[in-house]
C-alpha cells in the first residue's frame, strides 16, 4: 500500500504499531485496533438494537434475535439443552470470527483472523474448555470419548490411538481451516487485483487484458464473503460438536 506501483499481496497481513506502549511488545497495533473494533461493533450493535426490548421487533432488533436464535439452534442441535451452558461462549466465538472476517472484506481493513496465532488461540480455547469441562463433568469417564462403544475389543488397540490423534489434532484443524481460508482468499484477491493495476498500465491492450482479472476479482470478492460467513459458521458448529463431546463423552 505504501508504494502504489508495487503490488505486494503479503503487505495486508503486516502488523504495525499504532500506539507504542513501551518496549514489551504490548503496543496497540492495527491487529489490536481491529479486534477492539470487532468487539465494539458486535457489542454496540447487539446492545443498542435491543435497547427498546420491543415485543414486536423492528428490523435492527430482529437481526440480533435471528443471530441469537441461529446460534442457539446450532448449539442445541449439536449439544442438546445441556450445551446451552456454553451458548455465550459459542455465540462470542461465532460473532467474533464472523465480524472479524467481514471487517477483513472492507478495503484497507486489517483481517484479524488471517493470523494463525489468533485462530490457534481461539481453537486452543475451545480445546481446553472441552477438556476441562469434560473432566469436571464426567471425571475419568471422559476418556470413554476415545473408546467408541460397540467396537470389538481386538480392534480397540487400533481405534483408540486414531481417536486420540484425531482429538489432539482438533485445535490444529480448527485453527488452520479458518486461518488458511481467510489468508488464501485475501492473497488471491490481492493478486488478481494487482493484475488489473499492472495490466492497466500497459495501454489499451492492457485495459482489455485487465478485464479478465477484474471479472475474477469481482467473483472472488463474492466468494470471499461467502467464505467469511461460512468459516465463522463452521468454526461455531465444530465448537458446538466438540462441546457435545465434553457433555456426552460416550459415542
Amino acid at each position: 500500500m505504501a508504494d502504489p506501483n508495487k503490488v505486494d499481496p503479503i503487505h495486508q497481513f503486516q502488523i504495525t504499531d499504532i500506539v507504542s506502549l513501551g518496549e514489551g511488545g504490548v503496543s496497540f497495533t492495527n491487529s489490536a485496533l481491529f479486534m477492539v473494533l470487532t468487539v465494539g461493533a458486535i457489542a454496540l450493535y447487539l446492545i443498542m438494537s435491543t435497547q427498546k426490548r420491543s415485543l414486536v421487533p423492528n428490523r435492527v432488533q430482529l437481526v440480533s434475535e435471528m443471530l441469537y436464535e441461529f446460534v442457539a439452534k446450532m448449539v442445541t442441535d449439536s449439544a442438546g439443552k445441556a450445551g446451552m451452558k456454553f451458548f455465550p461462549f459459542v455465540f462470542s466465538l461465532f460473532m467474533f470470527v464472523l465480524v472479524a472476517n467481514m471487517f477483513g472484506m472492507i478495503p484497507f481493513f486489517f483481517t484479524v483472523t488471517s493470523h494463525i496465532i489468533i485462530t490457534f488461540a481461539l481453537a486452543m480455547l475451545v480445546f481446553l474448555v472441552v477438556i476441562v469441562y469434560g473432566f469436571i463433568k464426567n471425571g475419568p469417564k471422559f476418556l470413554k470419548l476415545f473408546v467408541p462403544s460397540g467396537v470389538p475389543g481386538y480392534v480397540l488397540p487400533i481405534v483408540v490411538p486414531i481417536e486420540v490423534v484425531s482429538f489432539l489434532s482438533r485445535p490444529i484443524s480448527l485453527s488452520v481451516r479458518l486461518f488458511a481460508n481467510i489468508l488464501a482468499g485475501h492473497i488471491t484477491l490481492k493478486v488478481f487485483a494487482g493484475f488489473i493495476v499492472t495490466l492497466g498500465g500497459l495501454g489499451f491492450m492492457g485495459w482489455l487484458g485487465a478485464l479478465l482479472p477484474l471479472v475474477m476479482t469481482v467473483a472472488i470478492t463474492a466468494l470471499e464473503f461467502l467464505v467469511a460467513a461460512l468459516q465463522a459458521y463452521v468454526f461455531a458448529v465444530l465448537t458446538s460438536m466438540y462441546i457435545n463431546d465434553a457433555i456426552h463423552p460416550s459415542h
Binding site: 511488545g25 504490548v26 503496543s27 491487529s31 489490536a32 479486534m35 496465532i117 489468533i118 481461539l122
Partner: peptide, 9 residues
Amino acid sequence: TFGGQLLWL
C-alpha cells in the same frame, strides 16, 4: 507479533 496479538485477543 504473537505475544501482542495474544494479549489483545
